[in-house]
């Protein structure tokens, strides 16, 4: 299996929109692309991870304006069930052209909803733009709370940004305190369901993006499908992004390949181990 999936092009990119960049995780790709698509009527709304009543607990919501889109900026690193709003977006919100952003497993769920719409009436033909985010794993809310409050010693309410990168889990507070934990500490709090996931860069998205492979403040963008190519091309022409060829940035595609290979190899091992988990008994494999 090609760990990066099929793609038509890959670049390093950054939004040209100052307002979006101000609070985005990296290059502001997802927000800018959706803002453009919304403005051009390519989508009439998007299912995103927005804020909830608990600090740092994302909650899926449907954004139909630029102002609403901006509320979803930044990575939350814990579970947000976007797909639970997918049918809702076409029903209660009456959208005909739905955009959705998600981590690889959620993009898989979206594609399954399109090809096997068993309980997803009127969804398959109304998905207009699918944007995937690279994902190694996420934490359940309680797991993340434990990392931030017990290990990093910070109140969730006081956290401004979280980052995972370079082997560290970084917690930055509003007052500028930076706490770093080695990922060795956080591994055990990962969501178990993530350990059977065989996709790092959202192989089946129209466009997938993440910070890995690009310099700070930039994102690596894969354009994968005809829809992706069309929308990305138009957004580029409209000046939404500045780009650099991926082979001219550090650390480049090699780093993406390395992490994707790491994740898939590790998780394939988990899937394999499940085949003889008990004494002569297997735990169910969803992929066969």
């Amino acid at each position: 299996m090609n760990v990066l999936g099929k793609y038509k092009s890959v670049v390093s990119a950054r939004s040209t929109d100052k307002e979006i960049l101000k609070a985005s995780q990296d290059g502001g790709i997802v927000t800018s692309l959706f803002a453009y698509a919304l403005e051009q009527g390519i989508i009439d709304g998007a299912v995103l991870a927005g804020p909830s009543s608990r600090p740092w607990q994302p909650q899926p919501f449907v954004a139909t304006t630029r102002a609403e889109l901006l509320k979803a900026r930044g990575t939350k690193y814990n579970i947000c069930p976007q797909i639970s709003m997918l049918k809702e977006a076409t029903r209660s919100y009456g959208l005909d052209k739905v955009g959705i952003v998600g981590v690889p497993c959620q993009i898989q769920a979206t594609r399954k909803a399109q090809l096997y719409p068993i309980g997803m009436r009127d969804v398959p033909d109304k998905i207009a733009l699918v944007v995937g985010i690279y994902c190694m794993e996420v934490f359940p809310y309680k797991g993340m709370q434990l990392i931030v409050e017990d290990h990093a010693g910070q109140k969730l309410q006081s956290v401004k940004k979280m980052e995972i990168g370079k082997g560290k889990f970084t917690v930055i507070t509003e007052r500028g305190n930076v706490t770093q934990l080695p990922l060795k500490v956080t591994h055990k709090y990962e969501q178990p369901g993530c350990h059977v996931c065989l996709d790092y860069v959202a192989n089946t998205a129209d466009v997938s993006t993440g910070s890995v492979g690009s310099p700070d403040g930039w994102s690596t963008v894969f354009v994968r499908s005809r829809i992706g190519e069309d929308v990305w091309g138009k957004a580029m022409a409209a000046g939404c992004f500045e780009t650099k060829p991926i082979d001219q940035v550090k650390p480049g595609l090699e780093m993406v390949t390395k992490l994707a290979t790491e994740k898939i190899t590790k998780n394939q091992k988990t899937v394999d181990e499940r085949a003889h988990f008990g004494v002569g008994k297997a735990l169910r494999n969803p992929y066969i």
């Binding site: 069930p81 976007q82 639970s84 769920a109 309980g119």
Partner: peptide, 9 residues
């Protein structure tokens, strides 16, 4: 992994 497909379906 908490995607929410079941809830939507």
């Amino acid at each position: 992994m908490g995607c929410g497909s079941c809830a939507a379906a």
